[in-house]
Design a protein around this nucleic acid. Structure first.
Lengths: 204, 204
DNA sequence: ATTCGCATTAACCAATTGGTTAAACCGTAT
DNA sequence: ATACGGTTTAACCAATTGGTTAATGCGAAT
């Protein structure tokens, strides 16, 4: 740390790092204070409790996780272009914060009601419906029946996100180091796009 | 609980449940004792420390997670049959323990060296090489170059596992209840198999 | 120079948590 | 009956942890 940020900002940065690394239960307030290079009491001065600090970070991160979806499906570009862009942007975003999805999922499982609370005001359904209509319009009746929108959505998210989360397992499974695995992940963007388009018979 | 199991077994059952639910940091020894309906001191009598108890459970779970891979690739069945069976068995197994992958991944990220330690004596590479050669033999040179084995493996694992982990998010995204989501997940087995075979041009 | 108000700190506190201990329990062999 | 062994329990302990407090620092306004 040791940057010339405001104390409040230093705390937020440190809290992000520690919470994402250790989760709510595993994170210690002292860890965050050390990371921010400030006195532990300052944490409670700026953010009343651990829970409040956590909620703030979590809220921000969940918005971040869905932000990629946002801008993409509002313009009139064709479906295959939308998909290609989504795969690339979402992959790049998670490559920057590989621990984000695991962190969010973990806390959502811990507290099942949290999901609806945090997501309900977000314009998620709006984006989804925009996406769904683009999907329905681009596909033939037959193709749409073969691969329902929900399944396609599951495929897309799974193919993009899971490999980042499962890095420790895959590294052992295919015996590569971090650098080689990064290589595989970056090649993946095209592979995933191709597979998704192929699955709805829109190969280009 | 309240079953007529031995104390040791009651503790193990309870520990599995609590650890899988809350992780190492989030689990309280008292939670485990309550779940097992025994005195907290018994935990230390049978398993010296929290860490030792956790290690035992974790070891067992990681074996379980990979056990499906084991039996499948030793016989001489054709590749498409292997894939189909793997998707079904792995899906069923995770449907029984949906929190397993998140739990394992979480602890592996927490302790990066753990992955190699726990996985290195397992015959994972043997199985993988068996699978790889089946893959290479079944595919044409062209197809194999288009979709390298590693990418196919990532696809397969992602498509199977991630939807179970991401249930809280997907429920909000596509606005379904647990029952409807279960329905989607069970239909998924065929969808995933089809997509995987299609991706290596082995549609049947 | 003094006052005022936010920022910062060290010391402290109460609750929680993993772990220990010594005594009690209880079926079995003597 | 008694002694013995593993098992179980309640009480206890030391360390950790989230959170508080009262005092201090310090720049700006008076």
């Amino acid at each position: 740390m040791a940057k010339d940020l405001s104390t409040e900002e230093k705390i937020k940065q440190a809290a992000k790092k520690i919470f994402m690394q250790k989760g709510l239960a595993g994170a210690r307030m002292q860890d965050i204070a050390d990371e921010a290079e400030i006195n532990k009491a300052m944490l409670h001065y700026y953010f009343r409790s651990k829970q409040q600090l956590f909620d703030l970070i979590f809220e921000e991160k969940i918005v971040q996780l869905f932000s990629t979806l946002g801008g993409l499906f509002l313009d009139a570009s064709p479906l295959d272009e939308k998909i290609k862009l989504f795969v690339e942007k979402q992959s790049d975003m998670i490559a920057d914060f590989p621990s984000l999805p695991l962190f969010v999922l973990n806390e959502l499982w811990q507290n099942p009601t949290l999901a609806e609370e945090k997501l309900k005001d977000k314009p998620l359904h709006l984006i989804r419906e925009k996406f769904r209509s683009a999907y329905d319009e681009a596909l033939t009746d037959e193709a749409r029946e073969q691969l329902p929108f929900e399944q396609f959505l599951l495929n897309m998210m799974s193919l993009i996100i899971y490999p980042f989360m499962a890095r420790p397992i895959f590294k052992s499974m295919i015996e590569v180091d971090d650098h080689q695995f990064d290589q595989i992940l970056s090649e993946r963007k095209q592979q995933v796009t191709k597979l998704l388009l192929q699955s709805i018979k829109l190969d280009s």
